[in-house]
Amino acid sequence: MSYAYLFKYIIIGDTGVGKSCLLLQFTDKRFQPVHDLTIGVEFGARMITIDGKQIKLQIWDTAGQEAFRSITRSYYRGAAGALLVYDITRRDTFNHLTTWLEDARQHSNSNMVIMLIGNKSDLESRREVKKEEGEAFAREHGLIFMETSAKTAANVEEAFINTAKEIYEKIQEGVFDINNEANGIKIGPQHSPTNTSLPLSGSGSSQGGGCC
């Protein structure tokens, strides 16, 4: 299936915060209460539409345990977006955000869009981290923020899609060099071969996905 752009995402955060469940909910629209834990990395992909354009999201889901960091760092390379996930029912997963953020910023390109996600919003009675705290952290570090529930699917679509919107806007503004794949963005085959080098700040490029 052809697409206008391909964005590479990574999902990071402590073990057990629901990274794999978020991915499964987004790609397969289901919630799996019991599943094998992630060892190393897993992948998922899905098409979305933004501004009339087909965009393929290629998502890398990583193991959360500290021991795996030396390996997961190599996945950061060339990601356009990152979902940084914590569990609203476990304070420690929120406390570790700074370390994750430093890690992500150090090993990825500086323009990477980071979405902070407080997952398990369905477990309101066990909440340990207030929504305001997540918002404040996001404000302070220049992230987008959302609370989600991989179980009920609340905000899951939005989390992935809003991140893509932000990346898309950055492309429109010319912030991303889309000809450099190290930025986690690839121009799809949907663009005709005669027009592979798109203008970086193409204000008129928002019309029609088939060809420009």
């Binding site: 499964l24 790609t27 799996q32 019991v34 094998d36 992948f43 998922g44 992909a45 899905r46 393929k56």
Partner: peptide
Amino acid sequence: FSRSSSCSRTR
């Protein structure tokens, strides 16, 4: 385009 998982056997 679907999730590719090593543990798809349980899914």
